[in-house]
């Protein structure tokens, strides 16, 4: 069966996609909360003020979460999923917990989806935690990408959490992903 084509999220997505606490997978005051944040920029390095970033992640023990509640946050249920819109400076941020590795020796990552006005179909990528050098070195994806572009997939630790910038085009362009069953969907 042929998959429906994507279309841009357009300029007015806040209307349909924004809701309270959408970027708070945990309350920011939670002592274990970490801030995952970054800037989305275009091919000239200018901020993209109308992008939507979604993250989907394992819990701190590396388990896939199967609980509802992402649209109506109760402050206690960790659902593993969140959404953020960029601000006028192209910045987004999430309050969340750090994901754990799916199994020992694997690097932990956030699965990331990007939508924007001007972007005709969604993009996928991963934002890896930076700490486990051996696990990162052994990761099949990180081993497969051009070494010069590898760091675009790895978050950086700063005082207030983790930084993950997204460059849609040009210098430092983020590595975006395809999956086996999407292959025929791209010309």
């Amino acid at each position: 069966m042929s998959a429906a084509p994507g279309q841009t999220v357009g300029p007015f997505f806040h209307l349909g996609l924004a809701y309270p606490q959408m970027n708070e997978l945990v309350p920011p005051a939670n002592p274990r909360a970490v801030r995952l944040h970054g800037r989305v920029t275009d091919g000239e390095g200018n901020p993209v003020p109308d992008a939507v970033i979604e993250i989907w992640q394992a819990d701190p023990l590396g388990r896939v979460v199967r609980r509802p509640g992402s649209l109506r946050r109760d402050g206690w249920t960790f659902t593993g999923w969140g959404r953020a819109a960029t601000d006028p400076d192209g910045l987004y941020s999430f309050a969340t917990l750090e994901p754990g590795p799916a199994e020992p020796g694997k690097p932990a990552f956030f699965a990331v989806t990007v939508f924007a006005r001007g972007l005709l179909d969604r993009l996928f990528t991963r934002a890896y935690l930076p700490d486990d050098a051996a696990a990162l070195a052994a990761d099949p994806l990180l081993s497969a990408v051009d070494p010069a572009r590898r760091d675009t997939l790895i978050t950086k630790r700063v005082d207030q959490g983790l930084v993950f910038d997204l460059r849609l085009q040009g210098t430092g362009e983020t590595v975006f992903l395809s999956y086996p069953r999407l292959r025929d969907a791209w010309a």
């Binding site: 200018n46 799916a102 001007g118 005709l120 993009l123 497969a144 849609l168 362009e173 590595v175 999956y179």
Partner: peptide
């Protein structure tokens, strides 16, 4: 608006794992 907002590098094929 698409001119500066799409990647020019090919997408990297990967086998999905865990949350993916």
């Amino acid at each position: 608006s698409s001119v500066l907002r799409h990647p020019k590098q090919p997408l990297q094929l990967v086998d999905p794992e865990s949350v993916e």
